[in-house]
Amino acid sequence: GATAVSEWTEYKTADGKTYYYNNRTLESTFEKPQELK
């Protein structure tokens, strides 16, 4: 079976905060997504 690849990509803001962006739902969040835990 195919492994589900996380759609979340980790980015940093200009002031160094980490956030996560989902390229399928176009959602962004500062909290670590469930799929990455």
Results as ranks from 00 to 15, higher is better:
residue 17 K to A: 06
residue 16 G to S: 02
residue 14 A to T: 09
residue 4 A to G: 13
residue 16 G to Y: 01
residue 23 N to P: 07
residue 22 N to Y: 00
residue 19 Y to H: 05
residue 14 A to L: 09
residue 26 L to S: 11
residue 4 A to K: 11
residue 32 K to E: 08
residue 9 T to A: 10
residue 36 L to W: 05
residue 22 N to H: 02
residue 2 A to P: 14
residue 32 K to S: 04
residue 4 A to R: 10
residue 4 A to E: 13
residue 23 N to Q: 11
residue 2 A to F: 09
residue 31 E to A: 07
residue 15 D to K: 04
residue 5 V to G: 12
residue 12 K to D: 03
residue 6 S to A: 10
residue 14 A to S: 10
residue 11 Y to F: 12
residue 34 Q to M: 12
residue 23 N to R: 08
residue 19 Y to S: 03
residue 7 E to W: 07
residue 11 Y to V: 10
residue 26 L to R: 14
residue 11 Y to Q: 10
residue 9 T to G: 06
residue 1 G to R: 14
residue 6 S to E: 10
residue 30 F to M: 09
residue 28 S to A: 13
residue 2 A to E: 13
residue 22 N to I: 00
residue 34 Q to D: 15
residue 19 Y to I: 12
residue 18 T to P: 07
residue 13 T to V: 02
residue 26 L to D: 10
residue 34 Q to N: 14
residue 17 K to N: 07
residue 11 Y to M: 15
residue 25 T to R: 01
residue 4 A to P: 11
residue 3 T to C: 10
residue 27 E to T: 05
residue 37 K to G: 15
residue 11 Y to S: 05
residue 25 T to H: 01
residue 35 E to Y: 07
residue 26 L to F: 15
residue 36 L to D: 08
residue 7 E to V: 07
residue 23 N to W: 14
residue 26 L to N: 15
residue 34 Q to T: 11
residue 30 F to E: 08
residue 16 G to C: 08
residue 21 Y to M: 07
residue 14 A to E: 11
residue 1 G to P: 14
residue 6 S to H: 09
residue 30 F to T: 10
residue 35 E to K: 05
residue 5 V to R: 10
residue 23 N to L: 09
residue 28 S to G: 09
residue 7 E to G: 08
residue 12 K to A: 06
residue 10 E to R: 03
residue 2 A to L: 12
residue 29 T to P: 01
residue 24 R to S: 11
residue 32 K to M: 14
residue 16 G to Q: 02
residue 8 W to V: 01
residue 8 W to A: 00
residue 17 K to T: 10
residue 18 T to G: 03
residue 34 Q to C: 15
residue 6 S to F: 08
residue 31 E to S: 09
residue 21 Y to P: 03
residue 22 N to E: 01
residue 5 V to E: 12
residue 20 Y to Q: 00
residue 27 E to G: 03
residue 10 E to P: 04
residue 23 N to H: 14
residue 35 E to G: 09
residue 15 D to Y: 04
residue 17 K to D: 08
residue 24 R to P: 02
residue 8 W to R: 01
residue 37 K to S: 13
residue 12 K to E: 07
residue 1 G to I: 14
residue 32 K to P: 10
residue 2 A to N: 14
residue 36 L to Y: 12
residue 3 T to Q: 13
residue 33 P to T: 02
residue 18 T to E: 05
residue 5 V to S: 13
residue 2 A to W: 04
residue 5 V to H: 12
residue 30 F to S: 09
residue 36 L to P: 07
residue 6 S to Y: 08
residue 20 Y to H: 00
residue 29 T to N: 03
residue 29 T to H: 05
residue 11 Y to L: 15
residue 16 G to N: 03
residue 22 N to Q: 01
residue 13 T to L: 05
residue 27 E to S: 04
residue 32 K to Y: 05
residue 5 V to K: 13
residue 33 P to Q: 02
residue 20 Y to S: 00
residue 31 E to L: 08
residue 21 Y to S: 03
residue 14 A to V: 11
residue 16 G to M: 01
residue 1 G to W: 09
residue 21 Y to D: 03
residue 8 W to K: 00
residue 19 Y to E: 04
residue 15 D to E: 10
residue 11 Y to N: 06
residue 15 D to P: 00
residue 22 N to T: 00
residue 3 T to V: 12
residue 28 S to I: 15
residue 24 R to T: 12
residue 25 T to W: 02
residue 23 N to S: 15
residue 33 P to A: 02
residue 8 W to L: 00
residue 13 T to H: 04
residue 4 A to T: 13
residue 19 Y to G: 05
residue 18 T to K: 08
residue 25 T to D: 01
residue 3 T to D: 14
residue 31 E to F: 07
residue 36 L to Q: 07
residue 1 G to E: 14
residue 19 Y to V: 10
residue 26 L to C: 15
residue 25 T to A: 01
residue 2 A to G: 14
residue 33 P to F: 02
residue 22 N to M: 00
residue 30 F to K: 04
residue 8 W to E: 00
residue 34 Q to P: 14
residue 22 N to D: 02
residue 7 E to H: 08
residue 33 P to G: 02
residue 1 G to K: 13
residue 27 E to N: 03
residue 37 K to F: 15
residue 16 G to A: 01
residue 31 E to I: 13
residue 9 T to Y: 08
residue 12 K to V: 14
residue 7 E to T: 05
residue 3 T to E: 15
residue 37 K to Y: 11
residue 10 E to G: 01
residue 3 T to S: 14
residue 12 K to Q: 11
residue 25 T to V: 01
residue 4 A to W: 05
residue 13 T to E: 03
residue 18 T to D: 05
residue 3 T to I: 12
residue 10 E to I: 07
residue 24 R to V: 15
residue 15 D to I: 02
residue 31 E to H: 07
residue 33 P to W: 02
residue 7 E to L: 07
residue 32 K to N: 06
residue 2 A to S: 13
residue 14 A to Q: 09
residue 14 A to F: 04
residue 19 Y to T: 03
residue 17 K to Y: 08
residue 32 K to W: 03
residue 33 P to K: 02
residue 12 K to N: 04
residue 34 Q to Y: 10
residue 10 E to A: 05
residue 16 G to H: 02
residue 27 E to Q: 10
residue 28 S to R: 12
residue 20 Y to F: 05
residue 31 E to Q: 09
residue 21 Y to H: 07
residue 30 F to Y: 09
residue 4 A to V: 13
residue 34 Q to F: 10
residue 10 E to M: 05
residue 37 K to L: 15
residue 17 K to Q: 10
residue 11 Y to P: 00
residue 16 G to F: 01
residue 4 A to D: 12
residue 22 N to P: 01
residue 18 T to R: 05
residue 34 Q to S: 14
residue 19 Y to W: 09
residue 20 Y to I: 00
residue 2 A to M: 13
